[in-house]
């Protein structure tokens, strides 16, 4: 009977990170253990368990109570991600207009404007807000430094690298803290992983075998790329990220959040944010490179999802 209660509570706490889930369940299991051993609760174990169950109440009510304490800030998190993100296109237009007069108004200003959002995320103790802006800014800084190719000079490059590595350290710290939560780890590391994959694929580009991939898929991928992805500012990266991140932040169901993350991976892959950089520098790459890049993040998300599910099943 008590096992059924714990199982039901576990199911109701599914959208909590596994580490937090275990802490909450441990406390309740300790409560059950105390009750089972307490003679005040009844003459025999059966009687004690019966009284204990009535005292425990409904597992749904208990999980609702915990959710109201720990999961009540999602909408504010959502706004802190979506509103600044929606302002991106307007800021870009503004930078383009101002750049003709003031040459310092470029991506650097954009990064500096968005840095306080990391501070806000930390202050609110919001993992999602902090991770989203940290990974966005790290990629922006590296993208800026790679495409600038030494334009900002040594001192500025060093300062930007220090900022980037500070942010990466922060990201590593958050990931370590959530090391048992596969969902958060994937959300945190996917964009950076794809940046690294982008760099590696760009390096091996010259050795790619053009004849090994089917032409139809190549054409489809390139069509999506040209029509929707654009060079860094297309519809697919912008609206795709907006929709998938909104779903990921607002959804309470664990599986829905994984699905949102899967589509987020697909958007990253198809929009090829981090390959665009190299396209601009060294021209279009071989189609197999794009194909690998488009499919890889989705495969990574699905793989980790599957692994985390099989791990959860063995725990039960």
């Amino acid at each position: 009977m008590t096992q059924e209660y714990i199982q039901s509570l576990r199911n109701n706490l599914k959208d909590f990170p596994p580490e937090e889930q275990e802490i909450l369940l441990d406390e309740l299991m300790s409560h059950i253990e105390s009750g089972e051993d307490d003679p005040i609760m009844g003459k025999n174990k059966e009687e004690r368990i019966k009284k204990l169950m009535s005292e425990l109440g409904n597992p749904q009510d208990l999980s609702k109570g915990f959710k109201s304490i720990y999961r009540n800030n999602r909408f504010i998190d959502f706004l802190l991600i979506v509103i600044p993100y929606l302002l991106y296109p307007f800021l870009n237009v503004m930078y383009s207009n101002l750049m003709t007069t003031y040459n310092w108004v470029d991506v650097r200003l954009d990064i500096l404007i968005h840095l306080p959002l990391v501070v806000v995320g930390l202050w609110r103790k919001s993992t999602l807000v902090t991770l989203f802006w940290v990974s966005t800014l790290v990629i922006q800084i590296f993208a800026m430094l790679i495409s600038a190719q030494g334009y900002y000079g040594n001192l500025q490059t060093i300062i930007w690298l220090v900022i980037a590595f500070t942010l990466i350290t922060l990201l590593g710290n958050i990931v370590w803290h959530h090391r048992y939560d596969a969902l958060i780890i994937v959300f945190a590391l996917l964009p950076l992983t794809m940046l690294i994959v982008g760099i590696v694929l760009a390096i091996i580009n010259s050795s790619a075998d053009l004849s090994s991939m089917p032409q139809v898929i190549d054409k489809l991928i390139l069509d999506i790329y040209i029509n929707f992805a654009g060079f860094g500012s297309g519809y697919l990266p912008f609206y795709g990220t907006l929709i998938t991140i909104s779903l990921f932040v607002l959804a309470t169901n664990h599986n829905v959040r994984w699905i949102a993350l899967g589509f987020y991976g697909l958007v990253i892959g198809l929009s090829r944010h981090h390959l665009n950089l190299f396209d601009e520098i060294q021209g279009l790459m071989a189609p197999p490179i794009y194909l690998v890049y488009a499919i890889l993040p989705l495969v990574l998300v699905l793989l980790v999802w599957r692994l985390s599910q099989s791990k959860a099943q063995t725990q039960i």
Binding site: G57, D61, F66
Partner: peptide
């Protein structure tokens, strides 16, 4: 008499 659903949260 308090239930766990009231006490723990």
């Amino acid at each position: 008499t308090m239930t766990a659903a009231l006490l723990y949260p």
